[in-house]
Amino acid sequence: MKIQKEALAGTLESSDLMVKVSPNSGIEIIVNSEVNKQFGAQIRSVVESTLAQLNVTDGLIVIDDKGALDCAIKARVQCAVLRGAEVEELDWSKLL
């Protein structure tokens, strides 16, 4: 799966995150977090595994985190990717 167009998901509220995706060759992930020093690596690994589950091969993923739980990170990344890849039919076995 490739990111075809720019897309956004999430909010700027506390305990949430905003995910921006755009077309790219290869995967690039940039994490900016208010809790970056403590949890930057953890956030990145959640993002990476979420992308891997969806077989995303190309895309730039920018995360602005406001202290979200892993489940919210996963959901927001999935949403931004699915919007950016213009996927309508979901394969839930890859999402849960």
Partner: peptide, 14 residues
């Protein structure tokens, strides 16, 4: 709607 659906699905995994 799409975002909320995914968020609920993941939250239910807690």
């Amino acid at each position: 709607k799409d975002a909320a659906r995914l968020l609920v699905a993941q939250t239910l995994q807690l």
